[in-house]
Amino acid sequence: MLPSADLLDADYLIIGHGLAGALLAWELRQRGQRVLVLDAGLPNAASRVAAGLINPVAGKRFALSWRIDELLPAAAATYRALEAEFGQPFFHELPILKLFSSVREQNDVLARSADGRWGDYVRDPAQPLPDVPLLKQPFGGLVLQHGGWVDTSALLDALTADGLQKGWLRAETFAPELLVAEASGATYAGRVRVRRVVFCEGAAAVRNPWFGWLPITPNQGEVLDVEAPTLPTDYVLNRGAYVVPVGDGGRVRVGATYRWPPFAEEPTPEAREELAERLRELTEAPFRITGQRVGVRPAVRDRKPLLGLHPQLPALAVFNGLGSKGVLLAPRLAGLLADALENGAELWPEVNILRYHALYPVAPAASVPAP
Rank of each mutant, 00 (worst) to 15 (best):
P267Q: 04
L179V: 14
G185P: 15
P349F: 11
G291V: 00
A75W: 09
L38W: 11
G140C: 06
G18N: 13
L8Y: 11
Q165Y: 02
Y242S: 10
E222A: 04
L333P: 03
A20D: 07
L64K: 13
E281H: 11
A228E: 00
R278P: 01
N44P: 09
L313C: 13
L316W: 07
L333G: 09
A81C: 01
P305F: 00
R191M: 14
H17L: 09
V35R: 02
W213K: 12
F287W: 01
A315N: 01
L337F: 05
A299Q: 06
R48A: 12
L359E: 05
L38T: 03
R293P: 03
P361T: 10
A40K: 01
R355D: 02
D225C: 00
A175S: 09
A22R: 13
I353H: 03
C200H: 07
I216K: 04
V296K: 11
F91H: 15
V318W: 05
L72D: 02
G240T: 07
P73V: 03
K166L: 12
F90L: 05
G323H: 06
I68H: 02
P245M: 13
Q165S: 08
L237M: 01
G321A: 09
L71Y: 08
A228C: 02
A345N: 05
P3A: 14
E70N: 05
